[in-house]
């Protein structure tokens, strides 16, 4: 298949999209912001018979609070997320991560649905979806199903999403009043960089000084898929999160991750950095909590 021979269609409704997805005799792929799709097309990796252009499907671009959580449409751009007052208040960890995706130009084009569907181990928004207990709604012509985020990814670039399915909603848990979150990223430079390691942290704080009632920690780029650090999470509640406790928790992180060596960093460094980013993130979170 040559690039010039690929057909592109621009359906106006979700139903129309699903109809095209169901066509068995042709391969197809979605293109939304194009920040992954175009690059991979030029690399020759993604050359479907048909591009289904969904960029203009505004019905899938929304951020709203419902009874069962905050609903984010898959075509919501990273910039939409960064600017959302609702998310800044109730999902600060996600707005923080969206700010770290590539650079402003990429944030303007790239969508959260695309970040999820591409399923890169280094995808910046994905760890935050783990700490916010995201649920992914997958829709096909025949049915609609909800998949918890921790069951969604199978490996690098692979998910449980079937060819005839599309992501139609992302439901996240709103953070409560005493919950705070942070996203820490280590890249080779400040902008336009792919994570060497990243971590999303969300903590529920108590009445006493730096008392942590519980929290979630998810690492990206340290394994084929996101790693929830359950051991570190358990340690969060042992002692108030003063500097020593933070160091102890961070010190346990390197055992929780299974990174590889690649052109960006060695496995050894990535392991150390899992601890370093957790330490830095918890310190910054506690400073912010003290100053609230």
């Amino acid at each position: 298949m040559k690039v010039s021979e690929i057909e592109m269609i621009s359906p106006q409704t979700v139903e129309e999209c699903l109809y095209h997805l169901g066509e068995k005799d042709k391969t197809s792929r979605f293109i939304a912001g194009g920040t992954d799709a175009v690059v991979r097309m030029k690399d020759g990796a993604w050359l479907p018979d048909t591009w289904i252009n969904i960029k203009q499907l505004d019905s899938l671009r929304y951020i709203k609070e419902e009874e069962n959580g905050i609903h984010i449409g898959p075509l919501t751009t990273h910039t939409d997320i960064v600017h959302s007052g609702l998310l800044q208040k109730k999902a600060d960890v996600l707005t923080a991560a969206s700010k770290e995706v590539g650079a402003v130009q990429l944030q303007n084009m790239g969508t959260i649905g695309g970040n999820i569907a591409t399923a890169s181990p280094a995808g910046d928004t994905i760890p935050t979806l783990f700490v916010l207990d995201a649920q992914i709604e997958l829709t096909s012509l025949m049915e609609k199903r909800i998949v918890p985020i921790n069951e969604f990814f199978v490996g690098p670039g692979r998910t449980v999403q079937a060819q005839e399915e599309m992501i139609t909603n992302i439901i996240i848990r709103p953070q409560t009043e005493n919950e705070i979150g942070i996203f820490e990223k280590l890249g080779p430079r400040k902008a336009q960089s792919i994570s060497i390691v990243n971590v999303a942290i969300s903590l529920k704080m108590g009445e006493k000084s730096r008392e942590c009632l519980g929290g979630k920690i998810a690492f990206g780029s340290v394994a084929p898929t996101i790693v929830r650090s359950e051991k570190c999470e358990r340690m969060l509640t042992i002692n108030p999160l003063h500097d020593e406790a933070i160091q102890d928790i961070a010190g346990a992180a390197w055992k929780e991750v299974m990174p590889i060596s690649d052109v960006r960093a060695s496995a050894k460094y990535r392991r150390s950095m899992a601890s370093a980013l957790l330490e830095r993130g918890l310190y910054r979170l506690m400073k912010r909590w003290d100053e609230r």
Partner: peptide, 10 residues
């Protein structure tokens, strides 16, 4: 992608 040159932020 993997050749890192400084941007305005650096």
């Amino acid at each position: 992608t993997d050749y890192i040159i400084p941007t305005i932020r650096e």
